[in-house]
Design a protein around this nucleic acid. Structure first.
Ligand SMILES: [Zn+2]
Ligand SMILES: [Zn+2]
Ligand SMILES: [Zn+2]
Ligand SMILES: [Zn+2]
Lengths: 167, 167
DNA sequence: CTTGACCTTGGATACAACTCCAAGGTTTAT
DNA sequence: ATAAACCTTGGAGTTGTATCCAAGGTCAAG
């Protein structure tokens, strides 16, 4: 049995957040003291942990409420309904993953095209790619190193670069 | 050269959104007509497309601004700076993917434990898992099918797991 | 009995990222 | 020359997800 502050501390949220979740039907304390203090059980804490886990991965509170609300009303749902809901969310998550994978690839391509060296970014492949937004990114040939053949290392040549400078 | 409405239609955003992006330094029209109408170039359109792609995958406008702002100021950045920024975002994306993969797994486990049939969800494994929030999910043994041994097909028959909590 | 930590409620505020509105100016087509 | 369809600005409203605040009630310790 926890009072609101205890549960909040336990799960690292604010008491305000717990009241907010209550107001929105996500988590209500199992009881109250005579004086009106909220009393949460361990089951409430578990429910909160589920909410937090779901939230951490990008579910909206509305989606979480939908997931949780079925439980209040079990007998009016079939396994098919429940599983369908979970599968919907699953598809949702998978779509998000696909989206992120796509962008990951873009970022990797950008990253690979850049030498990461201390040279001025005036001819940086990353910036050029952002400007032109073409699909194929041109690797730097380091003509921007105003220097000699000493610097004709290319993209794949990830030579020692530890120069962390301020701007 | 596009007027605001044309660019909006082209990229499927509202004119309001374009003005909003302008106000927040993400995308300004390259020029104005004498009467004050915004005029966007193809380069502006490309920039907008980048913004939209980045947004679609979860970057905040602030992050996008950060990415784009470097370009205004190329010569004050080194390749190392630019690449570092991209790599930060990349790490960010990868972390998000990992998070989503984790939740994907949870959802898959939930989904697998449920028969998905027309039976009442009163003993649905998914709901039980949500309630108890235990790590290991018990598969349905279909005792809820008010029926005979005909329905003793199981997920993989790990119905030995017992109920542990309740304080 | 007073103090300080905790709790209650309702309402205000914040931030992101729009979205809509009002009042008026511009362009184009008939 | 008038209407329709565009554009301008500034500002208000919306949704989701909280946070903060004020005024006051509760509780255990000294
Ligand atoms: Zn370089
Ligand atoms: Zn570079
Ligand atoms: Zn079932
Ligand atoms: Zn089920």
């Amino acid at each position: 049995m926890y009072r609101i502050g205890e549960l909040a501390q336990l799960c690292e949220v604010r008491t305000d957040t717990l009241r907010f979740y209550e107001k929105h039907g996500l988590l209500s304390p199992s009881s109250r003291t005579d004086s009106g203090y909220r009393i949460y059980t361990e089951a409430d804490a578990e429910r909160l942990r589920f909410i937090l886990r779901a939230k951490a991965v990008g579910f909206t509170l509305a989606e979480i409420a939908e997931l949780l609300s079925i439980e209040l009303d079990k007998s009016n749902w079939a396994c098919a309904d429940v599983k369908g809901l979970v599968d919907d969310k699953l598809a949702n998550v998978e779509a998000k993953i696909a989206e992120l994978n796509h962008f990951q690839l873009s970022l990797q391509r950008l990253s690979q095209a850049c030498c990461g060296g201390p040279e001025s970014a005036e001819h940086c492949s990353i910036l050029e790619a952002l400007e032109s937004s073409t699909e194929n990114i041109r690797c730097e040939n380091h003509s921007h190193t105003h220097d000699d053949a000493q610097f004709t290392k290319t993209c794949q040549d990830k030579s020692a670069v530890k120069n962390t400078q301020e701007k």
